[in-house]
Amino acid sequence: MRQEWSGIEEDQLVDEIRFESDLVRALLRDQHPDLADFVLAEVDGGWDNQMWRLGDELAVRLPRTERAPDLLGIEQKWLPELSEHLPLPTPTPVRVGKPSSRFPHTWTIARWVRGEPADRTPITRRESVAGLAEFLRALHRQAPANAPKNPDRGIPFADFAHNTDGWFDVIADYQGAERIREIFDEAAAAPAWAGPPLWLHGDLHPANVVVQDGTLSGIVDFGELCAGDPATDLSAAWILLPSAAAVGQFFDSYGEVDDPTVARARGWAVLRALGLIEIGSNGRLGLPGGKPTWEPAGYLTLDRVLTEIDG
Rank of each mutant, 00 (worst) to 15 (best):
Y174V: 00
L28S: 10
A26F: 04
R153G: 01
N282T: 08
A265N: 11
L40W: 12
R53Y: 12
R153E: 02
P260C: 10
L216F: 07
A269V: 10
Y174A: 02
G73Q: 10
A227T: 13
N163G: 05
A143E: 06
P104D: 10
A41S: 11
A297C: 15
R61W: 11
A161R: 04
Q76C: 07
L216T: 08
T301Q: 04
P104K: 07
A237R: 06
D203K: 10
N150Y: 02
G7W: 09
E256D: 13
R125C: 07
Q212M: 13
L300N: 13
R126N: 07
R284V: 15
L216V: 11
R61M: 14
D56H: 15
K291H: 05
A227K: 07
R137T: 08
E66N: 11
S253C: 15
E10Q: 10
D159K: 03
G202D: 05
D252Y: 09
R61Y: 11
Y254T: 04
A177Q: 13
P144H: 06
A190K: 01
R114V: 04
F19R: 04
L285R: 15
R137H: 14
R114C: 00
I74H: 05
M1N: 03
F135H: 11
V220L: 15
W294T: 04
I183Y: 03
I123Y: 09
D159V: 00
C226M: 07
Q3P: 00
P197Y: 02
R141V: 10
G248P: 03
V43W: 06
A236N: 07
V262R: 15
A133V: 04
R29H: 09
S243H: 11
T301Y: 06
G298H: 09
